[in-house]
Amino acid sequence: MQAKRVTFPGRILPALLLLPQLAITAVFFLWPSAEALWQSLRREDAFGTRSEFVGLDNFRQLFADPAYLASFSTTLVFSASVALLSLALGLLFAVLTERVGRGRALYQSLLIWPYAVAPALAALMWSFLFDPSIGPVAKLLGRLGLPWNHQVNGGQALILIVIASTWKQVSYNFLFFVAGLAAIPRSLLEAAAIDAASPWRTFWTIVFPLLAPTSFFLLVVNIVYAFFDTFGVVHATTQGGPAQATTTLVYKVFRDGFVGLDLGGSAAQSVVLLAIVIALTAVQFRFVERRVHY
């Protein structure tokens, strides 16, 4: 990590400049994380008065708990669905707007604003559309012979939070794909046209491979989003239900910690999440490094 070639002398000023950032980092990031690690190795008695060291017991218990494993697979299904769906739609919309001449700017403006909507609000709006008794979409589905009730049907609840989460994330991917498409040199497309490639063929043989770095980067970002930023979606609508069908890992940490007051278990879950974040970040940074050399 380099500094600039030309620097200023002095040690006190840089220390003062770094102080606020480091202080907050230490108090609210490092200390709590260390505490999570520490607590994940201990267990409190029923009254919360004493705690003892239990080694990896909390983790062993965690991975023996069917509810936790179920939450794990729920999270995987949920994240994969959200990531892939929002990527595919984002790319589709970007390619479509690229193809229209007139009105492109208008389409773009109308497609990016959901980014600004909080996940919890997105979830609220979609849960109205799918409200079993009065939601327009639920009614429509009922008329089509597909009765909808996400309050009792776990699969449907999962679909609902996938839709709400995807809806918000499409804008983000759309924006990056628009930028990615704009960065493709015109001369390549012209060469393809001279080589008599059809638009379809041009897309799959030239445009898509050139978008691969963008897509991969977005994939990681989307997974992080689906893992962590969708807490509001779950909390504001399904509350993890029905019957734990929408209990994602992050939601579970929250509930076990704040409602269940299981400090050790919640801390162990935090540590697992921590490991996932670190893995994802590592993947992302390796990729960023590669992209620099690209």
Partner: peptide, 10 residues
């Protein structure tokens, strides 16, 4: 690397 969601309780 540490979104607030990960270390909520501490």
């Amino acid at each position: 690397m540490l979104p607030v969601e990960v270390r909520i309780l501490p």
